[in-house]
C-alpha cells in the first residue's frame, strides 16, 4: 500500500487565507497566526507562509549596517515592482506592494518574524498606498494622537510604556504610519511593546503578556481590551525627545526647524522621486501639526514628570 505524503507547508491561496486582524490600516489575510493584530477593517494584505523557493534578489537599493541605535544588518533589493528584504538572522521577506502581498521567511522565531513583518515589509506596502512612515511611537491621549519622535535608544518605547501604564492606548511603539489627508492622522500599528527588562521590572506593567525576550528586551502583546481597532486617530502634536543632563523642559519648534529632524526619522528610497515624495510629506506634516521638543534626562525615576509634560502638551498647556 502506498504511503500518503503530505507537504510540510501547504502553499496558501487567497481563498484559503482567513482574515486574521488588522494592522496599519490593512486587514491581514493569512493561514498563519499572529500575536499583534488589532480588530478592524482595511485594505487586504496577504501574508503568506514561506515558500521553498529561495528568492533571487534584484538590485540592491538600501543597506542598514549595525550601529548602537540600530543593531541589525539588513539589505533591501528591488526587482521590478517587487522587493526582497534580507535581515541577518531573519531570512528573506518578499514584498509585492502593488499586490499587497508579503511572503515570510522560514524560521523557528515566529515572534521576531512577525515583529519584523510590521517594519520595512509593511512600510513598503503603506508607502505604496500614499501614507508616510516615521520612526516614532504614537500614543492616544483623550481622543487624539501624540507622536514621540526620536532615533533608536532615545526612550520612545519606554515613554510609550509609561503612558500605557497610566491608561493611554499605544498606537505604535517604534514605527508610525501617518496619513496626511484630509488631515494628519495616525493609523494604529502592531499592538506590541518591546521594553527593556529593567524598565519592565520598574514599571510593573499590567495589561500586557510577555511573548518573547531577546537583546535584553521583553516583547509584550497588549491585552485585547486595550488594543482597540485600526481606525485612524487624529494627530494632535509631535514631540521630539531630546536628552538633557538635568531638568525637564519643553519648547515649541518652528516648522522650518522641525523638518531636518523629521527627515532623519523618515524612510525614503535613494531616488529623486521618492525623496520628493518624502520631503513633501514631512513638510506638509510640519506645517500642519504643532511640534515640540522635550528635553529630559534618560532616567526611569524622571518618567512620571516626563509623562506629565507630554500630557500638558496634549492638553494645550505645553
Amino acid at each position: 500500500m502506498a504511503e500518503a505524503v503530505f507537504p510540510e507547508v501547504i502553499a496558501p491561496s487567497p481563498a484559503a487565507a482567513l482574515p486574521a486582524g488588522a494592522c496599519f490600516g490593512f486587514r491581514v489575510f493569512s493561514t498563519l497566526s499572529f500575536r499583534y493584530l488589532r480588530d478592524g477593517d482595511g485594505e487586504p494584505l496577504w501574508v503568506e507562509a514561506p515558500s521553498d523557493e529561495e528568492p533571487s534578489p534584484g538590485r540592491l537599493v538600501a543597506e542598514w549596517v549595525p550601529r548602537p541605535d540600530r543593531p541589525f544588518h539588513a539589505r533591501l533589493h528591488q526587482d521590478g515592482w517587487r522587493y526582497q528584504l534580507w535581515i541577518e538572522d531573519g531570512g528573506w521577506y518578499v514584498v509585492d506592494p502593488g499586490a499587497r502581498r508579503i511572503t515570510l521567511p522560514r524560521t523557528d522565531d515566529i515572534v521576531r518574524r512577525e515583529e519584523r513583518l510590521w517594519g520595512i515589509p509593511t512600510v513598503l506596502c503603506f508607502l505604496q498606498r500614499g501614507d508616510l512612515p516615521l520612526h516614532a511611537a504614537a500614543v492616544e491621549v483623550e481622543g487624539a494622537a501624540v507622536l514621540l519622535a526620536a532615533p533608536g535608544r532615545f526612550g520612545k518605547t519606554t515613554l510609550a510604556a509609561a503612558l500605557f501604564r497610566e491608561g493611554y492606548r499605544v498606537l505604535s511603539e517604534d514605527l508610525s504610519c501617518l496619513r496626511l489627508r484630509p488631515f494628519p492622522q495616525v493609523i494604529p500599528g502592531p499592538a506590541m511593546l518591546r521594553v527593556r527588562r529593567d524598565v519592565a521590572d520598574r514599571l510593573k506593567l499590567c495589561g500586557l503578556q510577555a511573548v518573547a525576550e531577546s537583546d535584553n528586551r521583553i516583547s509584550f502583546t497588549i491585552d485585547k481590551p486595550r488594543r482597540g481597532d485600526c481606525r485612524p486617530v487624529r494627530l494632535r502634536a509631535i514631540v521630539f525627545l531630546k536628552p538633557a543632563h538635568d531638568g525637564i523642559a519643553t519648547e515649541r519648534v518652528r516648522a522650518t526647524d522641525a523638518i531636518p529632524d523629521l527627515w532623519t526619522l523618515s524612510f525614503h528610497m535613494p531616488t529623486d522621486e521618492d525623496r520628493r515624495r518624502c520631503f513633501g510629506g514631512i513638510a506638509d506634516l510640519a506645517g500642519s501639526v504643532p511640534v515640540w521638543a522635550l528635553h529630559r534626562p534618560l532616567r526611569i525615576e524622571d518618567l512620571p514628570v516626563t509623562v506629565e509634560h507630554i500630557l500638558a502638551i496634549c492638553r494645550g498647556h505645553g
Binding site: R254, A255, T256, I259, F279, G280, A283, D284, A286, G287
Partner: peptide, 11 residues
C-alpha cells in the same frame, strides 16, 4: 519646494 503656511514661508 513646499509652502508651510501663509505666514510661515516655505522650505
Amino acid at each position: 519646494a513646499r509652502e508651510l503656511g501663509r505666514r510661515d514661508g516655505g522650505v
